[in-house]
Design a protein around this nucleic acid. Structure first.
Lengths: 200, 200
DNA sequence: ATGGCGGCGTACGGTAGCGTATGGTAGAGT
DNA sequence: ACTCTACCATACGCTACCGTACGCCGCCAT
């Protein structure tokens, strides 16, 4: 056999670097994503790194692609739902992003968005992801019976809210923040056609 | 005369460093806030810096304080309004933060919040500012006649939205984003007691 | 005019990080 | 057993920083 010509284990290690890179990205931001730090975390030296990658930028590009593809897949999954379940799924969407759960995912989101402020190529990718998110969420609202304009504005509000929520330090807001969050979820999601037409 | 004992120009130069520091903070983030970079931008060497400041952390602390005080003052100013103008002021509040105008202020906000993720002391300050913002905004809603719970949730939604909005890259969303933003503003601000009780 | 000091420049040591060059090793193929 | 190569370590040069030590220069008061 030809030992699986192109990549028997090389490609797999590349992925290990990328996976760890995204981990560090979430914790330290793109500025803290250093080659030698990464190597230490992986228990190797940078001699390994420069075998797998041309340079640091090469890793950053790959990590960004992996992030984008993962986001696209996840968004598609989260918004592909059986008819009649759209309204419930919108609430689920908001919950999924609410920083308590999915903390790491949100940290990655924020790190990438901070990165995008200083790198136009990253901003382009983020823009693509945002557009896709917007499109999918709007589709959910449309299938709930809302007119295009309202479906659009609610979609934008939904994502702006969940991202903004994760930026705020709300732990000393007087009463239970959970109650407020629940009320806000209802504001963003409803009233939908289900509320308007469902006799129950 | 005693040549104006404490600070004839020294304190003023300290402020110059801090002002420039906040500028760089907005553009490059806290990780890009380097002493020697700052010195070059100010046309001096770091010999000057270490006369005015103990070390880099000293500058960071001061910059953070200046930011906090400026925020507190601005929030107080933006939410202190004549009776009957509350509803209008809420809309104005959203507009002021909408990233198009006040771009630099928002960049500083985002940079400080990113900073807060890796520095507990910064997170405490941000928490104070957020709590004050929340309190002031809620007061506006309350004076519009809304019950406490709704005033609270709308206040939280308002700030989460404006911060989240500034994180998103919306330039390729199909139709006019301005229209969507206007609709969202109306969702967050209204219906208020003015809409409910004003016969006009 | 001159001593003192505020304000800054210069020079230095030290660390962290990028990227390169080159050597070493273990395992697969023959 | 020999070799080849994927994979990694070591060592180096370079730059960008931080912080310190110290020297210079101009301004004010006496």
């Amino acid at each position: 056999m030809e030992t699986m010509p192109p990549r028997p284990r090389a490609q797999l290690d590349r992925d290990a670097w990328i996976t760890e890179a995204i981990e560090v990205l979430a914790a330290e931001g793109v500025a803290g994503l250093r080659v030698e730090v990464l190597a230490k975390r992986l228990g190797v030296t940078k001699g390994s790194f420069y075998w797998h990658f041309k340079d640091r930028q090469d890793l950053l590009n790959e990590a960004l692609k992996v992030w984008r593809d993962g986001r696209i897949r996840d968004i598609a999954k989260q918004t592909r739902v059986a008819p009649g379940e759209e309204a419930r799924q919108i609430l689920h969407l908001i919950e999924v992003y609410s920083a308590s759960r999915n903390r790491k995912g949100m940290l990655i989101e924020l790190a990438v968005r901070d990165w995008a402020k200083r790198d136009a190529a990253v901003a382009t990718i983020v823009s693509e992801v945002d557009a896709f998110r917007f499109k999918c969420a709007r589709e959910l609202f449309l299938r709930c019976g809302l007119p295009v304009r309202e479906a659009s504005s609610r979609s934008l509000l939904l994502y702006a809210y969940v991202f903004g929520q994760s930026l705020m330090v709300v732990d000393q807001f007087d009463q239970g923040v959970e109650t407020l969050r629940a009320d806000i979820m209802a504001m963003i999601a409803g009233p939908t056609s289900a509320d308007l037409s469902d006799p129950a």
